[in-house]
C-alpha cells in the first residue's frame, strides 16, 4: 500500500508541475493577461496613409502604451485610412485636440500610433474623432524625394 501511495504522490506532483508549466506559459509568457482587459473606449482617426500599421499595433502617449489599434479600414469616399483605436478607460482625459501620428519604433521596427495631447479643456469622448493626424513616413518615398532633390540641386 505504501508503494501505491508513493506512486500517487509522484503522479500528483507530475500533473501539478505540468499544469503549472502550462499556466506559466499562458499567464507569464503570452498576452493572455492583457486579454483580461479593463474597459476601454474607442476613438477614430483618419490618416492619409497608415503605412505598415496593423491591427493590435500599440497606441502610446509620451512613450507609454495606453491602448491598441482595433481596426483599420479604407474609406472609399475620402480615400483615407480609418484607424480605430481602443484606449484603456483609465486614460480618459485626452484633450479633443490631440494629434495622432504614426511613428516607427527604431529605424525598421514596428509602427505605432503616437498621441500628442493638445491644450484643449474638453476631453475626447467614446467614439470621438481625432482631427489632426500625421501620416506614416514611408521610407521609400522619403528616399525618393531626397534623391530627386539632390538631382535638382546638381543642375
Amino acid at each position: 500500500m505504501q508503494h501505491t501511495n508513493n506512486q500517487d504522490t509522484l503522479v500528483g506532483i507530475f500533473v501539478a508541475a505540468g499544469i503549472l508549466g502550462l499556466f506559466f506559459l499562458a499567464m507569464h509568457v503570452s498576452n493572455l493577461s492583457s486579454f483580461v482587459e479593463e474597459d476601454s473606449y474607442t476613438i477614430t482617426a483618419r490618416f492619409e496613409n497608415s503605412g505598415g500599421l496593423k491591427v493590435k499595433s500599440p497606441v502610446s502617449a509620451a512613450g507609454v502604451k495606453i491602448g491598441k489599434v482595433s481596426s483599420i479600414s479604407f474609406d472609399p469616399k475620402t480615400y483615407q485610412s480609418v484607424v480605430q483605436m481602443s484606449i484603456d478607460s483609465k486614460y480618459n482625459t485626452m484633450p479633443d485636440d490631440t494629434t495622432a501620428s504614426i511613428f516607427t519604433a527604431g529605424l525598421l521596427g514596428e509602427q505605432y500610433v503616437n498621441l500628442e495631447p493638445g491644450g484643449s479643456d474638453t476631453y475626447l469622448k467614446a467614439d470621438g474623432k481625432i482631427e489632426i493626424t500625421q501620416s506614416a513616413i514611408i521610407l521609400e518615398k522619403a528616399i525618393g524625394q531626397f534623391l530627386f532633390k539632390s538631382a535638382e540641386e546638381k543642375k
Binding site: 507530475f14 500533473v15 505540468g18 499544469i19 508549466g21 502550462l22 506559459l25
Partner: peptide, 14 residues
C-alpha cells in the same frame, strides 16, 4: 502526459 511534458519543457526552457 505529452502536453504536460511539452508545456513543462517550454516553461523550463524560457
Amino acid at each position: 502526459s505529452m502536453p504536460l511534458l511539452a508545456g513543462l519543457f517550454s516553461a523550463v526552457g524560457i
